[in-house]
Write a protein that binds this DNA or RNA. Structure first.
Lengths: 333, 333
DNA sequence: AGTGATTTTTTACAGATGTATGCGTTGTCT
DNA sequence: AGACAACGCATACATCTGTAAAAAATCACT
């Protein structure tokens, strides 16, 4: 050509991409058609992609959610994120997340050979039970991962494990103890009872754990109904806690806070939970953003189930909102 | 899922496409990641494409031209179209087309083992010679496909073949005869001369033909300089002709017109040209639109070299201008 | 429960794609 | 002119992709 190299090569790449993407020709066909080698065509496509000449856009109502999930997944460094679409007009923190949790558990049970599933408790998990279909999994055992509350407003904390078991057609194993021991009770002595030893041994053998997280506020079922009188929410916050997972209060970095309350908690140790093969944490609500981040940092989440409202709040504000139109240069490598 | 099937499957397809196109994951990786089979992922991508969910856009200054060429190529039913970018401020019909012709010929000579190249003549081909680099093709013979003019304004019609040969470093073979025999000369007798028989035999053995086309107007070098006095342009038009290729006047359908002039023309028969393996026709200008269409219909064009202005005029107005953003559903089949 | 029909899942295989290797050509420097 | 380096090209090969057929599972019906 009389024209200079850059133009010519761009024009060539343009024509190659046109045939490839628009006309659907194969690289070999294009090479034959343009009297060149397949290698050249292949390289032209790769160059065009890396130059951002080829733009792939996915048009679907689900794109925003998928993108959000993907970004959050990378940011939190966890395996999977599900951001269920929340009702923005009647936002309740639990409805959509519960449905998504039910769907995930159902799907997982269909394909995985889970035997023991550890469960936490709380309003989010209660919502999940409501959405579960009736299944038959006689080989599955639902293992309660922490003690229960002695009083409550809406549901019995022990009923979470049994409720899961009932819907899943599974057996269950409760931890028949208060979540927080009374003052003066010797923890080691209490737990030395044989029945507890058997139960704690199951924690090490869980195939999956269904968790939730709460902040420290009256909205937290645990704080509202379970906290011993001598521990005020303010005192726990003072100690650096921003919320709890399984009754264990964590600081911003996901570390268990050093506080007398922790030594009175009856339930699985978070270090044990970390070793569980599949950890599903379901939680939503603007007030839970910090504790979800902390739980992720602690390594307590493989699959995060939340809603799109919370997910939006979870993503780093620094990471500017990307458009759904992205370059597909990734195929190059 | 609690949601209905359509939504779920669309959401799934969206997520799959996201991973595939945006994250650049392989179908197998996505299947493993989403706990499903590669088949499902493959089908989801195909469904998304066929639903128009995936849009591929090529962003390049050359897109418009490439698209134009491709559309024209299909419409004319020829192998290749090159629409060189014309200078719209100083439009001359020949500059850009000549450069493109030179580029094509150079490229073809580099890769193809052409031995005999037939050439027409005219201002467009003259422009091509000007843009040809100096090459060395001692094994190539340039064969003039028609007789010459006895007078002219700008260039000698015989110099086209010799000019090509000089630039290409090839030998040449002229047809030393007038393009139109004088009245009363017996054509068969004239052509029975041995030297012409040899030359005409070469027409059957051409590897390629470099052609052009003109309308019937003073802008045509042939009409202006070559037409016998007894044939007025009006008379030829009257006979149905809209232009000529190699001195053969064609009607709209590309048929050689039945006219006394045709029986006095000295040059290759168009039926012979049709059998030439590679026919390159270079022509541009709004006035040449009709004759280019006719030449294509006649099967005289494998590669059309024109400019973008002419190409725009050549495409059927009925075929609405498509946008450069097209669905890439073609990969499905 | 048994049986047949329908649908999924698995498996296999034929292209298509992306990459590395070695060879030949071109151009350049001494 | 000869040697060397750089570049491009053909080949080969390891995935990846798309599709069809076989096997298995599920479902509907008797």
């Amino acid at each position: 050509m009389v024209r200079e190299g850059q133009d010519e090569s761009d024009a060539f790449a343009t024509e190659v991409c046109w045939h490839y993407y628009v006309n659907g020709m194969t690289q070999g066909e294009i090479a034959k058609f343009l009297d060149t080698t397949r290698l050249r065509v292949n390289q032209a496509i790769q160059r065009a992609k890396s130059l951002g000449m080829v733009k792939v856009r996915i048009e679907s109502p689900f794109v925003a959610r998928v993108e959000l999930q993907d970004r959050l997944r990378r940011q939190l460094g966890i395996e999977r994120v599900i951001a269920a679409p929340a009702r923005r007009d009647a936002y309740d923190y639990h409805g959509s997340v519960g449905a998504a949790l039910a769907a995930v558990v159902t799907e997982r049970l269909r394909t995985k050979a889970w035997r023991k599933i550890g469960v936490s408790w709380g309003m989010t998990l209660e919502a999940g039970i409501q959405k579960l279909p009736q299944l038959a999994n006689p080989d599955v055992e639902i293992v309660s991962m922490l003690g229960g509350t002695m009083q409550g407003a809406s549901f019995n904390s022990f009923s979470i494990a049994s409720g899961f078991a009932a819907q899943l057609g599974a057996s269950y194993s409760l931890l028949a103890a208060p979540i927080f021991l009374s003052e003066g009770v010797d923890r080691d002595l209490f737990l030395s009872q044989e029945i507890f030893a058997d139960h704690f041994a199951k924690f090490e053998a869980l195939d999956a754990a269904i968790l939730t997280a709460s902040d420290i506020s009256p909205r937290s079922y645990l704080v509202a109904n379970g906290l011993p009188e001598e521990f005020s929410p303010a005192a726990i916050t003072e100690a650096g806690a921003i919320g709890d997972v399984l009754g264990r209060f964590l600081d911003e970095e996901g570390r268990t806070i050093d506080h007398p309350l922790d030594r009175r908690t009856i339930g699985v140790d978070l270090d044990v939970v970390e070793r569980t093969p599949e950890k599903i944490l379901a939680a939503a609500g603007p007030h839970k953003v910090e504790i979800i981040r902390a739980a992720a940092r602690r390594g307590l989440i493989d699959t995060l189930i939340t809603d799109d409202v919370t997910a939006e709040l979870l993503v780093e504000p620094s990471e500017g909102r990307k458009t759904a139109t992205l370059t597909a240069e990734q195929r190059a490598g």
